[in-house]
Design a protein around this nucleic acid. Structure first.
Lengths: 344, 344
DNA sequence: CTGAAAGCGCTTACAG
DNA sequence: CTGAAAGCGCTTACAG
């Protein structure tokens, strides 16, 4: 492929002029610019990125770290991040933590330190102290989605509030026997959303003077299969089965709905279900949910990051803790309704 | 961050020795190696990637191009690719084509030509002639998943065979009124899987001496919402409603099942449904499918690519067309059964 | 406005 | 086995 030298020769100018003409940063005479542009066009010249990086220290590349990429939430947020970055001329390098501790260590201790990225965007990742220290070695901005990171900027919904909101919706409809299916504490140690959402549920129950019976509290992973299993168990109880279930995620909600149907129960007549997310398939299930506008969230976080990167006063901005709350709202569909008279 | 110079100074050797000791490629005395390793450890030295790339021409980075990242198939394949790459010390740079034609052009004409990747892996992308030419300018290996690319290596299932297999399963169960919900031709112009799967269906019908009535042929996008809609329409027909539906993907299968249930039909007693993929949620729906082991497919393609990259005779290997077929198999669950006697 | 030259931080023939 | 030095392909003060 053609290099800057070739372009300079063809245009009859120095490489410095080529560089200036193409970057558009410095003043170049119109005539020189035209010659350079024509030559570059003719040769199909694209500046080598590593040379650019070595000379400037800029990568035009963002590292994105997430615990999974094959779960809906993560893939949707990734899509939004990628689109926003490309629009702004940035590359995206993906690091996924699903490969276990060894891989995780490698990513934090080696990959991220190769000076290959200008900034790091974490999604629902909770770095430990040592990892945070490694990140800070890079002296580059960090922004976190889906949870706060000590000493870094973050954009996250209020999980406690979301859990409370979902539960209050059910209570307001008249439900008193409300269950919660929470993420298993420990299985996803990245985020402690699970806990916070559950606490929101507990608070709503408490404020309404309702008891949260032990058999209304289930834990499983964030999958529909897991929720299916615990829901069957819960609804199968001969006494005190709940009339409504708040699931920590929409995917869990899907599982709960399927379990109810398979037991011959009707949603929402016999059992109400609400989730959190507004998953692409929630419409299909008619699932009422707390919409967290996942894609907008990813795009917004990326914009925030880009702003920091483009700030001339960047150095002083590196790794300020600044927590931005992401607003969520109730989205009512057909999976929730008043409990039927003397239901079950 | 510490540079190679710092390490050399601390270890009391030249930078050449540091480089050799750390890369492990050239012979270095044990004593020198130990000193270098200790110094590198102490300083937390990680080689700058752009300098490495500029000096060697190697990026240890693969570009992955896909039309979406927020659809299950793509996110699952991406997860597998990423894990395989990280294991082998490679980075992954993601390019997603969902941003429209302008973005697509930018990716092929600029991003990929920056010499930032050692190879390109495309997933269900069908580059046009001009794009292919751009790719070939890079003189770097290309491997395609999910469809063949002219002049490049590929790993893909036989879509025609998959469609036929699914249809034959239904016919073998005794169904004669079998419908197909296909991807809308044109909506996903990347791949022409839609066509091939449909042709497999048509061939199976033909070979069984069955007619494929026009109202049994529907087209929609690859979503469950789209399939829901067309299924309702199809099953609502007063005459000649099908007793079985072959959906081009599992997500479409979910939509078909939901539509049937919402009409009060039982699956599989009143209507059988089969998909293609083996989506993570297929178990939940009890969906019979043609399993294409998505993650294994992504990992295998990545391994193939890495093999090519590590082949010392690489240059001669660049962009040979070599189509590897990926085997698929029928996975029977509870959404398919014999048609009931004189059903509907 | 433009060019010669230094420099970014590595790797790797070339000598020894 | 090891070091001095050239070179990878850009950008950007520094002079003019």
């Amino acid at each position: 492929m053609a290099g800057i030298e070739d372009v300079a020769k063809l245009a009859g100018v120095s490489t410095a002029t080529v560089s200036r003409a193409l970057s558009g940063k410095d003043h170049v005479s119109d005539r020189a610019r035209e010659k350079v542009e024509a030559a570059a066009q003719e040769l199909g010249y694209v500046a080598s990125h590593s040379a650019y990086t070595l000379a400037t220290g800029r990568n035009r590349n963002i590292g994105v770290v997430m615990p999974y990429v094959d779960r809906w939430f993560f893939s949707a947020v990734l899509e939004a991040i990628e689109s926003t970055l490309i629009e702004n001329g940035y590359d995206l390098t993906l690091y996924n933590l699903s490969g276990g501790q060894e891989q995780r260590t490698k990513i934090f201790n080696e990959f991220l330190l190769r000076q290959r990225v200008d900034a790091v965007l974490t999604v629902a990742v909770h770095p430990n102290e040592a990892e945070l220290e490694q990140l800070n070695k890079m002296v580059k901005p960090i922004i976190a989605i889906g949870g706060q990171v000590h000493g870094a900027r973050s954009l996250a919904m209020d999980d406690h509030h979301a859990g409370k909101l979902a539960t209050e919706h059910l209570i307001a409809l008249g439900h008193t026997r409300v269950a919660n299916i929470s993420g298993a504490i420990g299985s996803d140690r990245e985020f402690d959303q699970a806990n916070k959402r559950k606490e929101g549920y507990l608070e709503a129950m408490h404020e309404a003077g309702l008891e949260a019976r032990p058999n209304w509290l289930a834990e499983t992973d964030y999958t529909s299969a897991g929720a299916y299993k615990v829901t069957k168990q819960m609804l199968g109880e001969p006494k005190n089965a709940p009339t409504a279930i708040f699931c920590n995620s929409d995917e869990m909600g899907f599982g709960a709905i399927m379990a109810a149907k398979d037991l011959g129960l009707r949603v929402p007549q016999d059992i109400s279900v609400i989730g959190i997310d507004n998953h692409d398939m929630s419409e299909l299930f008619g699932l009422t949910t707390v919409d967290q506008r996942v894609r907008e969230q990813g795009a917004e976080a990326t914009r925030l990051l880009l702003e920091v990167l483009n700030d001339p006063a960047l150095d002083s901005h590196v790794n300020i803790e600044e927590d931005v709350e992401w607003k969520v709202s109730l989205l009512v569909r057909s999976s929730t309704a008043r409990p039927s008279q003397g239901s079950r």
